[in-house]
């Protein structure tokens, strides 16, 4: 496997000694969509901050494109150019007074020229649909708009790897529905996309690969097609089994739908019900 990001035998403890990750080995494949599942406190957010070099592992190594991370200034700058992290809480990211200014922060830090920065900022704002909000003060945005502004702030840096911590948390259904095509578009542009989430339905519908963390260790890592293995782990960890899988199994038992491969989304299930062949 061609791994863009990798953690090897990583331990991570908080300052008070609480362990968050234990002997974790995990590799993220280049160009794929990976969903990271796990209960609260399983270590998802910690892992994501390790991948962006915000935190350093207590033991073990983090690698980007096969090379161990360098934690000096140049190394971190290079890492953050390649790996963009969008935080769960938009207030930990937005610092500037207006949306456009906030989005310009990252690309300016990359040392790009003003014209290029301007071009990227406008493009990022258009991608997340915030062009008409560009002049607004950040504190006057709705929660969903704040989350999109954060995403734009990272997109403007044009990272190869895009990491999002709970991008759908707190969004209304309409916004959540728009998130999937947006993530797919970013993936189609050639990016590796990693999303930490609690939403197992979203994970199986969207991701190519799924990792499940439990108490700082890896409980599952496989293709999202591997529904049998995935469901066992999800049920055991009380993360909830995707609704489409349960419905499919029930409908299969009654002979309503055929095929061994379960659908991955509600739309796919409905399509199969409408057209059994």
């Amino acid at each position: 496997m061609n791994a863009i990001l990798e953690v090897k035998a990583v331990d991570f403890c908080y300052a008070d000694g609480t362990p968050a990750l234990r002997a974790l080995d995990l590799a993220f494949a280049r160009g794929r969509r990976t969903a990271l599942l796990g209960r609260n406190g399983a270590g998802k957010s910690t892992l994501l901050t390790l991948l962006n070099g915000i935190e350093r592992p207590s033991r073990g190594q983090v690698l980007c494109a096969g090379r161990p991370l360098r934690y000096d200034r140049a190394g971190l700058r290079e890492l953050r150019r390649r790996v963009g992290l969008v935080f769960q809480d938009p207030d930990s990211q937005l610092f500037s007074a207006s949306v456009r200014e906030d989005v310009s922060f990252g690309p300016l830090n990359l040392g790009l020229g003003k014209d290029e920065v301007r071009r990227r900022v406008e493009q990022a704002l258009a991608t997340v649909g915030l062009t008409d909000r560009a002049e607004r003060p950040t504190h006057a945005l709705s929660y969903g708009e704040k989350k999109r502004a954060c995403l734009a702030g990272v997109l403007a840096m044009d990272p190869e790897v895009l990491i999002l911590d709970e991008p759908a948390a707190g969004l209304d259904p309409a916004m959540t529905a728009r998130l999937v095509p947006l993530l797919d578009r970013l993936h189609d542009e050639g990016r590796t996309v990693i999303v930490a989430t609690h939403d197992v339905d979203f994970a199986v519908a969207w991701a190519d690969e799924i990792c499940v963390l439990h108490a700082g260790t890896l409980a599952f890592h496989g293709e999202s097609r591997d529904h049998a293995g995935l469901c066992r782990v999800l049920a055991a960890l009380e993360l909830g089994v995707p609704v489409v899988f349960e419905l499919f199994a029930a409908l299969q038992r009654r002979g309503v739908v055929r095929g061994a491969e379960p659908p991955r989304s509600r739309a796919e299930l409905l399509a199969r019900l409408a057209d059994p062949e």
Binding site: S92, S104, L108
Partner: peptide, 24 residues
């Protein structure tokens, strides 16, 4: 706590020692 979170957020976007942004 919030200040710490914000600092992490700035670091993630390549903050080194100067805050910079474009003006309208």
């Amino acid at each position: 706590w919030r200040a710490r979170q914000l600092h992490r957020g700035l670091l993630a976007r390549g903050f080194e020692d100067e805050l910079c942004w474009l003006e309208p």
